[in-house]
């Protein structure tokens, strides 16, 4: 902060810095995302099973090679899944796209 900032602060007109509670909330949000990464093996297993079930409805996947993990990133946490596809199921043909003679 420059001289004017110091003066502004001195005169109680500190408009430069945002309200400190906004900073507190944002810091808390980030810290809790990281803290809450500590989820149980059990929860990760059931997430994995649910993913297999849902994706399995659309394509054949390699269940044993499937990898799911939480990864720390600068701005939070990402759920990263690597799911090898073995085969795609033939989609039922949408009748509306069949050209009429």
């Amino acid at each position: 902060m420059g001289i004017s900032g110091v003066l502004a602060k001195f005169f109680g007109k500190d408009t430069e810095s945002e309200a400190s509670k906004t900073v507190a909330k944002e810091r808390l949000r980030l810290v809790l995302v990281h803290d809450r990464m500590d989820i149980s093996e059990q929860t990760m297993d059931s997430l994995r099973e649910d993913l297999i079930a849902v994706i399995g409805r659309y394509m054949e996947i390699d269940k044993d090679a499937l990898e799911v993990s939480l990864t720390r990133e600068d701005e939070g946490v990402a759920l990263v899944a690597n799911i090898p596809v073995l085969n795609l199921k033939r989609q039922p043909i949408d009748k509306s796209v069949i050209p009429e003679d």
Partner: peptide, 13 residues
Amino acid sequence: TGDMMSVEDILDI
């Protein structure tokens, strides 16, 4: 004055 989290802020989190 916005220098302390409010009840709502904390319940939100």
